[in-house]
């Protein structure tokens, strides 16, 4: 009897020691002060980047994404379409009118009866108000304009609404996030909830926060949208990706944004 109690005691001690070890191992990595890039337990992809990659993002001049932001700014002021209007005709100065917009998207759109992300909103405005052609998803123009608009909310905390009419779409997004898929049978959560800070083959896993999108990815050698990232993740688990702007991804976008509620908007971020 005594012996078995000792045995249990030893086992318990071992468990404590193990968790303490795991704890310190992780905490050791986390000792750095990440400033605004860490809010409580939430850490942006910036904190998982190498110092070299961070340096590129820290300097707005060196950050190549700003070449695209410049394209977006030019488009903001460019008159297009039959109505003879530009974005600026109605919204004037983007630094005032667009401040905060990037932090609250995607939002529920009454007219569509579903969620709408920033890219889709820009195109809706172009078609309805400017009577211009919509911009192609992932094109230089749409990426540039989206980055320009979202950049106006830089450093503002992500603040998406998940209640009211958005609630059912949030639930769908959440379900997608925890749904295992593909030949590798993996859900978003298997990597980004269970293993942030760990390695997946040669790559360091982050928490998968979306606050920096659209961002410049060194691997892509250009900026990309959040949907491009989703498609990439889906392909890596050998699942069939959805198309750009698909409802499934917009719902997921809301859930992922909500996971990072409170993190600062970093657009345009730079990542590996």
């Amino acid at each position: 009897m005594r012996k078995s109690i000792q045995g249990i005691g030893a086992l318990a001690a071992l468990a404590v020691a193990f968790s303490a070890f795991a704890g310190t191992a992780f905490a050791g990595k986390d000792k750095m002060n990440f400033g605004k890039y860490q809010v409580g337990e939430l850490r942006t992809g910036y904190t998982f980047s190498t110092p070299e990659t961070r340096a590129i993002q820290d300097d707005d001049f060196e950050n190549p994404a700003f070449l695209w932001v410049d394209v977006g700014e030019a488009l903001w002021n460019k008159k297009e379409g039959k109505a003879g209007k530009s974005c600026a005709s109605c919204h004037k100065n983007a630094s005032a009118s667009m401040r905060g917009v990037g932090a609250r998207y995607p939002v529920f759109n009454k007219k569509l009866g579903k969620l709408q992300n920033l890219e889709q909103r820009i195109n809706q405005e172009r078609v309805e108000k400017m009577q211009a052609k919509p911009l192609k998803y992932e094109s230089k123009e749409l990426l540039g304009l989206t980055m320009f608009v979202r950049n106006q909310s830089k450093d503002m905390p992500i603040n998406v609404s998940i209640d009211g009419p958005a609630a059912p779409f949030f639930e769908k997004g959440k379900k997608f996030y925890f749904q295992r898929r593909g030949q590798l049978d993996m859900a978003c959560a298997n990597c980004h909830v269970d293993n942030p800070g760990g390695m997946i083959r040669a790559n360091l896993l982050s928490q998968g926060q979306s606050n920096g999108f659209p961002l410049y990815r060194l691997k892509w050698q250009k900026p990309g949208s959040l949907h491009r990232r989703f498609r990439g993740c889906n392909k890596q688990v050998r699942a069939k990706p959805y198309s750009y702007g698909a409802d499934e991804y917009v719902n997921l976008e809301l859930y992922v944004a909500w996971r990072g509620q409170g993190l600062p908007v970093e657009t345009p971020a730079v990542r590996m």
Binding site: I56, E62, P64, L67, L218, Q221, K222
Partner: peptide, 8 residues
């Protein structure tokens, strides 16, 4: 040399 080369 990478795309969008930066030089200082």
């Amino acid at each position: 040399v990478s795309a969008n080369p930066y030089l200082a």
